[in-house]
Nucleic acid binder design. Structure first.
Length: 905
RNA sequence: GGGGGAAUGGCGGAAUCGGCAGACGCAUCGGACUUAAAAUCCGAAGCCCGCAAGGGCAUGGGGGUUCGAUCCCCCCUUCCCCCACCA
């Protein structure tokens, strides 16, 4: 017995007698080639009886399996469309309704594009390597392979439950050797191109996690994952030279169809600034300290230098009188949590080194050129040269510092008229005119910068320089659950890649993969894995024991999806030629910087290597909004768990005490018991209701609260739609007028009314796809069904059929069910999309607004083609009383819209 | 502190171009059906005054442009997100 028949009959068996009556033998059998006539068919909308069945049918028919060029069934005439979700990290807690929002949105787009005739690539996979997976594994005592497999199984089940039209034959798992083999191979591409290097770097170290972290993974001195304190430590680490691509990562943003806010964030992160390096001579012969400044025009106002506490010259420059104070400060800065160090609002601190430097723009005997050297933790060792010249007159931080330590403040830029400057006791940081600046006096800031640089170049004391905030990317971790570096360390200290045909370098099995207390890599504890031979030379070698960070696998996964089972290359060139770039990439704004920047970087390296044919991976990016939740707080502002709250009409009270509560909007949180799981909604209302509600909540891009109370509205819509199709009077599976060979009615009277309504719904649906405000499409469906409910006998088979084609991407299961009941032999998801036609969208008669002085005073019904004079005449009639005794000064007539009388008196 | 986004009934939201504010849904109220309830169907409803006809006020607040502003411009308030000593 086929599975779906069993499902239906099980349901029948399990239900009570009352529900049994709802199941009646099918009578419309001649029109339904797929249905045996003895099959019980429900008259009621019961999604459980058919949703799973249609999901299996799609799977069997392979409707969502995308064909690559050269594969059987590939249609070379069909245009391609690649719609990609940001693939999830498969956490132990599973998907909640917020994740599902974007997935449902892209699924609707993918389904619609397929119906429009595109060859659609819509894949899904798992970003399964990384710290959280390992932490979770350690907590539960299970191997991360095991927990990852359990979690991905759960995610896969949840996603399938939502009826998403992924091509599951392309599923990838970044933690699987068949995938990370190619992550390693592509890393070697970067290595061979000199973009991966080892460096002794001052890096973030997290004692709790026993690993180094990238700058981006540390927020205010605490780890992004787990919120553990972090400190800086010098360690030898693998770095990727993303800074070599800074300029292109910046410039190529312009051509992308991305939200402007994301582009701005990326520009900000790359942080290009133009300026100059200036060499200040030290009082030790031949020694200089180099500073970076964006304002070389203010050199004449530099009254002291500040080095970062970590600056290499600090040790040598400190005089004996200052020694103890400096040592204390340096130690303090090193031990201080970065929370304190990076807090911009805190007081400036610092210590004088006792040493002086010479400002190169002043003559050797000019006292203004002798500047004291300080250290302060507001100067970062990792940006510019780790040292600055302080111009307290024209930089807020320097100003604050100078005031605190009573250092000289000199005005060298005159603010424009009316802007406050030093004369008013304020620091002026804008552009003005140079003063007290010798050769550049009188020059505007822009010209002053150029002249100052030319002057420095002439004296060989400086040069123009472009700096980026973007740093090279710390790419190694001393953890277990990641891609091993495919590199061998030879006895002579050289590092060679593992040959491509020896990949993957598989993670060794380890029972205890906890990080070591000293921070050494867990892989170093597997000597039989570490000790190997270099296949090229036959000499003994040691494997690199670091692993790649969690980001590695997501730096190229969209390319693997194009050709996921290729075992000769990461992806075939022909596959990339055809599918690239991603046409629509949807995910949360949380990845605005890191993932999207890293992915662009790798893609550009591949472009240079001739592996891909586009400069950028993602042509259009769309950020889905956050799904928030309602929460309730009592009079004291304390939040109350959702399961203790009861709705009383418009207000909310605490169940036990009856205490009144205030409804607010927050993030979903376990502690508030307001996290929603799609499984629960689907179990209660069905997949289609869940999908519709996800979209109906509001525009895809907006942040909006989940409200379980609203869900029945979508369910009721589907039930109403069902009743429009399924015979309510007799016991057939469908209204007799809708079956395959039903006579087509002439489009007149009520039927013409429905035709108009249908075209309106089609038009609004088309609009909704442009902005991805799919909520308005759902509203349009509801409006049509309301109309059809009012006029059940006027609905023709053609209209019923076309409506299903429009709804199909949104509520695919119920559409397939009704479609097949109508006798359609093919699957609805393979049908085409009917288009709205202009002739059905224009009305013969329209209501125009009649305004007096811009205020609505009535409406007038006029022919669509009426001319301005006729419109005005009709409007005058409507507004007779309001116009009586008034002077009409002007009449504004907007054909088809309104007439506005401007009157006096 | 900087950047981005937002603010419309009791709630979620709608309103292609500057042209009838509140579509669609939730909650609410009324009616029909029912022994009753549920479900369903039909209907009401922004707020204020009024028996009504009608009028006034309304898209966070204040100004402006316009015959006309949820929409464009300026100022302000609140909320959300991101980044925060980058010289």
């Amino acid at each position: 017995m086929p599975e779906w028949i069993r499902t239906v009959s099980d349901t029948v068996r399990n239900c009570g007698a009352a529900i049994l009556r709802a199941f009646r033998p099918l009578r419309a059998a001649p029109h339904s080639p797929r249905r045996p006539s003895d099959l019980p068919v429900s008259q009621l909308y019961e999604p459980k009886t058919f949703e799973r069945r249609w999901q299996e049918r799609w799977q069997e028919a392979g409707v969502f399996a995308a064909k690559n060029p050269g594969q059987p069934g590939f249609d070379p005439k069909a245009p391609k469309y690649y719609v990609l979700d940001m693939f999830p990290y498969p956490s132990g807690s599973g998907l909640h309704v917020g994740h599902a929002l974007g997935y449902v949105g892209t699924d609707i787009v993918a389904r619609r594009k397929r119906m429009e005739g595109f060859n659609v690539l819509h894949p899904m996979g798992w970003d399964a390597f990384g710290l959280p997976a390992e932490q979770y594994a350690i907590q539960t005592g299970k191997h991360p392979r095991e927990t990852t497999d359990e979690n991905t199984a759960n995610f896969r089940r949840q996603l399938k439950n939502i009826g998403l039209s992924y091509d599951w034959s392309r599923e990838v798992d970044t933690s699987h050797p068949t995938y990370y083999r190619w992550t390693q191979a592509l890393f070697l591409e970067l290595f061979e191109r000199g973009l991966a290097y080892q460096a002794e770097a001052s890096v973030w170290w997290c004692e709790e996690l026993k690993t180094v972290l990238a700058n981006e993974e540390v927020i205010n001195g605490r780890s992004e994952r787990g919120n553990h304190p972090c400190v800086r430590r010098p360690l030898k680490q693998w770095m990727l030279k993303i800074t070599a691509y800074a300029e292109r990562l910046l410039a190529d943003l312009d051509e992308l169809d991305w939200p402007e806010s994301i582009k701005i964030q990326q520009r900000e992160w790359i942080g290009r600034s133009e300026g100059a390096e200036v060499d200040f001579a030290l009082e030790m012969p031949g020694e200089t300290v180099t500073v970076f400044t964006t304002r070389p025009d203010t050199l004449w106002g530099a009254t002291f230098l500040v080095l970062s506490p970590e600056h290499p010259l600090v040790e040598r420059l400190t005089t004996s009188q200052q020694r103890s104070a400096v040592d204390e400060y340096v130690a303090l800065a090193a031990s201080k949590s970065e929370v304190d160090r990076t807090d911009a609002s805190k007081d400036k601190t610092g210590v004088f080194l006792g040493a002086y430097a010479r400002n190169p723009v002043f003559a050797a005997d000019d006292p203004r050129g002798r500047v004291p050297i300080w250290i302060a933790d507001y100067v970062l060792s990792t940006y510019g040269t780790g040292a600055i010249m302080s111009v307290p007159g024209h930089d807020e931080r320097d100003f604050e510092f100078a005031r605190k330590f009573d250092l000289e403040i000199r005005e060298v830029v005159q603010p424009p008229q009316g802007v406050k400057g030093l004369a008013d006791g304020a620091c002026f940081t804008g552009e003005g005119v140079a003063v007290n600046s010798g050769p550049i006096d009188g020059m505007p800031t822009k010209a002053g910068k150029q002249h100052a640089i030319a002057l420095l170049v002439g004296k060989e004391r400086g040069r123009a320089r472009i700096t980026y905030k973007l740093r090279d990317w710390l790419f190694s971790r001393q953890r277990y659950w990641g891609e091993p570096f495919p590199l061998l360390h030879k006895g002579d200290g050289s590092i060679v890649p593992v040959p491509l045909d020896e990949l993957p370098v598989v993670l060794p099995e380890m029972a205890d993969f906890k990080p070591a207390a000293d921070g050494s890599a867990p892989l170093a504890r597997v000597p039989e894995w570490v000790r190997t031979t270099d296949p090229t030379s036959g000499q003994p070698a040691r494997r690199d024991t670091d692993t790649m960070p969690g980001w590695a696998g997501s730096c190229w996964y969209w390319l693997r999806f194009m050709d996921p089972r290729n075992d000769r290359a990461a992806f075939a060139k022909e596959a990339e030629q055809y599918w690239g770039p991603v046409d629509l990439y949807v995910g949360g704004a949380a990845h605005a910087v890191m993932h999207l920047l890293y992915a662009r970087f790798w893609h550009k390296v591949f472009f240079d290597a001739g592996l891909v044919h586009t400069k950028e991976p993602f042509q259009r990016l769309f950020n889905q909004g956050m799904v928030t939740a309602f929460a309730y707080e009592d009079a004291t502002g304390r939040l109350v768990s959702s399961d203790e709250v009861e709705a009383r009409g418009d207000s909310y009270v605490k169940k036990l005490s009856g205490e009144p509560l205030q409804q607010i909007v927050t993030k979903m949180a376990k502690s508030l018991k307001n996290v929603e799981n799609p499984d629960d909604i689907i179990a209660e209302h069905g997949t289609d209701t869940f999908r519709l509600y996800e979209m109906f909540m509001g525009p895809l891009a907006d942040s909006k609260p989940w409200n379980t109370r609203d869900i029945p509205g979508c369910r009721r819509f589907l039930e109403r739609m069902w009743r429009v199709y399924v015979d309510q009077d007799g016991d057939a599976s469908i209204r007799p007028s809708l079956v395959l060979d039903a006579p087509e009615l002439p489009i007149e009277g009520d039927t013409a009314l429905l035709e108009r309504a249908l075209h309106k719904a089609m038009q609004r649906t088309e609009w909704s796809f442009q902005s991805l405000n799919l909520n308005t499409a759902v509203a349009a469906f509801m409006t049509f069904v309301n109309e059809a409910t009012r006029l059940p006998n006027a609905l023709t088979r053609s209209q019923a059929r076309r409506f299903l084609q429009v709804v199909a991407p949104f509520a695919p299961h119920v559409v397939e069910e009704l479609w097949s009941r109508m006798g359609e032999p093919e699957l609805a998801c393979r049908a085409d999309v009917p288009r709205a036609e202009e002739r059905w969208l224009v009305e013969d008669e329209v209501d125009i607004a009649v305004q007096v002085n811009g205020k609505l005073r009535g409406t007038a019904r006029v022919a669509r083609t009426a001319d301005k004079a006729a419109l005005e005449a009709a409007a005058r009639e409507t507004a007779t009383t309001q116009l009586a005794g008034k002077d009409v000064l002007k009449v504004v007539v907007v054909p088809g819209k309104l007439v506005n009388f401007v009157v006096r008196g």
